[in-house]
Design a protein around this nucleic acid. Sequence first.
DNA 1: AATGAATGAGATTTCATTCAT
DNA 2: GATGAATGAAATCTCATTCAT
Lengths: 192, 192, 192, 192
Amino acid sequence: MNRRSALKSKENIKKAALEAFSKYGYNGASMRMIAHEAGISVGGLYLYFKNKEELCLFLIKEKLNEFSKNAQIIFENVEDPIEAISRYINMSIEYAKRHREFIITQTRDQGFTFGMDIKREFFEDQKKLIKNIIQQGIDKGLFRPLDAFEVTKVIMGVIRGYILSFVMDPDNVFDAEYCCELILKGLLKENP
Amino acid sequence: MNRRSALKSKENIKKAALEAFSKYGYNGASMRMIAHEAGISVGGLYLYFKNKEELCLFLIKEKLNEFSKNAQIIFENVEDPIEAISRYINMSIEYAKRHREFIITQTRDQGFTFGMDIKREFFEDQKKLIKNIIQQGIDKGLFRPLDAFEVTKVIMGVIRGYILSFVMDPDNVFDAEYCCELILKGLLKENP
Amino acid sequence: MNRRSALKSKENIKKAALEAFSKYGYNGASMRMIAHEAGISVGGLYLYFKNKEELCLFLIKEKLNEFSKNAQIIFENVEDPIEAISRYINMSIEYAKRHREFIITQTRDQGFTFGMDIKREFFEDQKKLIKNIIQQGIDKGLFRPLDAFEVTKVIMGVIRGYILSFVMDPDNVFDAEYCCELILKGLLKENP
Amino acid sequence: MNRRSALKSKENIKKAALEAFSKYGYNGASMRMIAHEAGISVGGLYLYFKNKEELCLFLIKEKLNEFSKNAQIIFENVEDPIEAISRYINMSIEYAKRHREFIITQTRDQGFTFGMDIKREFFEDQKKLIKNIIQQGIDKGLFRPLDAFEVTKVIMGVIRGYILSFVMDPDNVFDAEYCCELILKGLLKENP
DNA sequence: AATGAATGAGATTTCATTCAT
DNA sequence: GATGAATGAAATCTCATTCAT
């Protein structure tokens, strides 16, 4: 087989694995089923990924990076804190909606310690970005004088809840607009 | 062994199983490990629970019922919608904090379908309770004229996010007070 | 099954594993074939030994200990250096002859590093014992004034060679008496 | 590629394979690892050797032949039995020291039957050569009237022991001179 | 009620070998 | 000659479940 088909194989594996891990969790997804879904032999998987753990970590990293890039674009290009927060929440929710498999980044197998270094770093980065914009909003007198860090944690918790909700109860997931409005109303000074 | 020690055995199993499923997920927790932690033999487990699935479902049911009772008490005894919502959010968060193992109810192993009927029913019930109180608040002119159902979904999402945050990133979990304040501010009419 | 049959199972496994490792080497022997020979299921093996490596190391330790005890008895009870050396060589060779599986202690799979700590310790102990008795022989004027350590290494090399010969070419293995005589003649003062 | 680079490839493979088999044993060495070390593709290996077994047998044959030639030179050119034996022992030990990979010829993977015909033939040849020279020494009255065949087996055992010692415990290997002296002292008539 | 040895099915992983390019 | 992706078989290991005691 030539290089092009090798690239295709890796792509197939990634897609199949992402799907399987998202659906069944790390332990619930088997290499056999991933291989089958990717249209490759079980042994073939190991040509592309050293083992199950590395395959999963690779996917987690990739998804987190993808999301990070989206976030960066927002915070680099939007000046207004109100709009930035609004866009960040909307982007997060839309992202989770479109990339259901993003749930993989929330995988809780292996005692939640799975890929924790990578995830923790990601969470730290995101927290810094949000906290920063909230603080700006407070300093500019746009937001009420709340503790920026606490607000940040609430926002991140809400987003995390959204992702989980989307997977557990996809028909009854809240609307990004409402969520955003509710949170912003809570943040904004009462007399605009 | 007599009846008292049989009760003790069952209690030990439940405790050990709850811990194991919470820590390692459904597939990650093994019957052997549960038996060991419960101080009972592997075969002994099967005297109390038909199989792994039933053991897990039993625990999920129990936890959901426990939570439901707490919720019912709030909504039966508190008249004021503002206070009811506030108490519900606080209770949920405190509950998750004290019963970390509550995460078991959010388990997504086995293709999400695991115990889904029970969970869905529980979620429906909770949604009804919250939606009802929100609607009352709107009707009484206490809350802004939002869509009660959407607000309900946001609130449930937030709580779900809290539970997940608490497990994934326990050092950076948001404060119940702040969360409550933020959401209420968003709900309340601007000029109280 | 009761305790007695558990002991019997472990004994069966040890016997089968010793045989298999001796015959086919560490990598050449499969857990499946050991299980089959022991009359147990593959999974059953793992009730008694954590994994293949531990099973093999256990056997190596056991055999080395057994041999060590034999050696100790000789050196504790025999005063005359000539007789002690003679008995040690004879014992070693007889031991290897009777316990063909002793070859397991010479296993060279895994880059010879397999169980090396245990083996090295054993070799050091044996070297000390032999060197000591050789030195005594030299000091008493029974042996020629050779370097006791070099002689020790030759003797151990000869024994090692015997074990290997016995496995590779069992029909043409040298006689303990001849070997002993040859070495002693080389050691002894010419005019007795 | 032209003939010269094909030769180079085969040479690389042989070198890499010898190293790998010596270090890890027949089963422990993988074709992939050999290919990698030889700087060739996995498929490429099979252009030069039909399969793993043939590759290994080829190496064993080559090493045994090389050694045989060395032995032949000694016995063809040296008249004096004492010197011949001395040279043979020294040559063997030096050979093993310089060609550590010679250990491959002592490999006991695959149930000892691996390449056994070749090895047995080699051992027979060597035994004949040594026995012959020992007998000459006895007949000439230089050596004590021992059983020539038994002495031969001891000498071969010693050499075999040296090779194994060298690999298992390289820091504590005996000195060729000492070994030789010890054996010759044992062989020689007491009053020269 | 309780034990824990045993099993069989299935999981992850490795590897000699093949073959389309 | 040469590549390296792909495979299928087999290896190691795990685990829910059963059953004789």
